[in-house]
Design a protein around this nucleic acid. Structure first.
Length: 150
DNA sequence: GCCAACGTTGGC
DNA sequence: GCCAACGTTGGC
């Protein structure tokens, strides 16, 4: 199973919003690389939910891919952009700030912590995913067996 | 609010 | 196909 990271600005849509609504179309991505990653997502894939332009910028929980890529309903250009649906899995016990993410040795190669990284959807290795989830106070392997708790 | 880092667009 | 101008993202 592939792991991913999704960025969102909490002023626009936060993890708590996702918990509130239960499922959400992930629309509006207008970057080809990010779009291609979304098209590669499989139902049940787990994603770290990262909040940018936030106080603090931080990974805050885990969500899963509920519905694989389909035409982005917010796009006026047919066939060009894609959306997926995501659902909350579990909020972190404690958020993992960007500052702490930078301190995780497992993330040294992850584009997330590079200044100027503008990718809003990016793949994570298992090692990266587990390091972030563990730093958030969850057991990464418990997520495997119970993909839809919350 | 500033600005660095990029991706995209469009003129040539 | 190059590249300058422009727009956007996102950390600070």
């Amino acid at each position: 199973m592939q792991r991913w990271l999704l960025k969102s600005e909490p002023d626009v849509f936060s993890y708590d919003d996702l918990v509130r609504v239960g499922a959400e179309p992930w629309t509006g991505v207008r970057n080809y690389q990010a779009r291609n990653f979304m098209r590669a997502m499989k139902q049940g894939d787990l994603c770290v939910f990262y909040q940018s332009n936030a106080k603090p910028n931080a990974a805050v929980g885990v969500c899963s891919v509920l519905r694989e890529a389909y035409e982005d309903p917010t796009s006026t250009e047919p066939g060009r952009w894609s959306a997926v649906d995501v659902a909350p899995v579990s909020k972190f016990v404690s958020l993992v700030s960007l500052e702490r993410l930078r301190d995780l040795p497992e993330l040294l190669a992850c584009p997330l912590i590079r200044r100027g990284n503008r990718l809003s959807v990016l793949p994570l290795t298992n090692t990266e995913f587990e390091a972030i989830v563990a730093a958030g106070g969850l057991d990464p392997h418990a997520l495997d067996s119970v993909p839809m708790l919350h």
